[in-house]
Design a protein around this nucleic acid. Sequence first.
DNA 1: TTACAAAACTAACGCTTATTCGTTTTTAAT
DNA 2: ATTAAAAACGAATAAGCGTTAGTTTTGTAA
Lengths: 196, 196
Amino acid sequence: MSKIISVKNESKKETISKISAKLFRKKGFSATSMRELAVDIGVEASSLYNHIGSKSELLQIICFKVANDFINQINELEQIEIGVTIKLEKIIRFHIHKMLEDYDMVYVANHEWKHLQEPFLKNFLNQRKLYENKLIELIKIGISEKSIKKLNPQVLAFTILSAVRGLEFWQQHKKNIDIEELEKTMVTQLLTGIIK
Amino acid sequence: MSKIISVKNESKKETISKISAKLFRKKGFSATSMRELAVDIGVEASSLYNHIGSKSELLQIICFKVANDFINQINELEQIEIGVTIKLEKIIRFHIHKMLEDYDMVYVANHEWKHLQEPFLKNFLNQRKLYENKLIELIKIGISEKSIKKLNPQVLAFTILSAVRGLEFWQQHKKNIDIEELEKTMVTQLLTGIIK
DNA sequence: TTACAAAACTAACGCTTATTCGTTTTTAAT
DNA sequence: ATTAAAAACGAATAAGCGTTAGTTTTGTAA
């Protein structure tokens, strides 16, 4: 009857992944059925299996796409020779952009990763830990350079990550706020605090 | 065969709620079956229905217990006459304590609320919005009193809430860190920043 | 036009789900 | 010891799940 429509150079697998990401975000991975996904794509559920291996594979694609994007960004940043605080600012701004651009996928990677099957689950958590450790190392350098306060670097890193992760909030209030103001406010708050 | 064991003055409903919170946190609401819950309680699935109305009711109990605890705390705080920044510090510390004490329930309320059925879903979101607005109002007072930087109060509030929500992280690393140091670091970071 | 592959369809599989029913066991009060 | 209520049980229900199989339609290239 119908047919899977792919825009641009997107493969049909990518199309299905993106639409599944939207559904997984809205309803959760477990509560989303392949039949629901099929409806949103405009095809019968069984037809999906001409393009994907399993429901689980969709979650894998989403989670590792996001993980790789963040790892790649922080790797590139490591090469550049700029101050630690500027690097932190760039990281915060990257999180904000990613969250606003690839909202569904980032949200799913943050919230639904626990439904990954082994060995992907372990793999994903390793990637995340790797990212966290790179951020912690960066903060430690800042502390030793005396550009950052001597506080527990792990707590500092996790607080930053939590704060940017919470940008999900803003998807609802997107219209009410200017992105540049959002970035400026968050960077200021996380780096220099809120007290005058 | 077996029997539901309740400690202290806990009703059996409360016992079931707490154990379900642990399961909902670990596996997610949708991915947790009543049969699994029954195993953890030591009873057949059908026996649970002598004490609860439905699986959904368990989620309601958890979400509104948490929501009420937070609303009550901020209401009490409104009565007390202390400075805005001290109030903020108390709020942050309360979040930290709650997260460490009632980890499962707070986690579930934060992550699984979307599986609430109407009208409970709307009700819960209203409660949450109420809490957010109270925090925003507090920050606005701080800004007008010039104790807080003139930044977007909504962004400041949401960043704080996101950061404390991210305390889930620490459940895994609990052993590695002293709670007082955790509190001190987060309060310092969120209120006065990380840059020297 | 023919031929082949890609992708759609319908139907069904085996399994799990939350919940209900009728019955039996346990608990507690008389 | 008798009785009534509370709480357990096993079995069954209907619905939904991911996925597979077999078949038909569609698209493409010779």
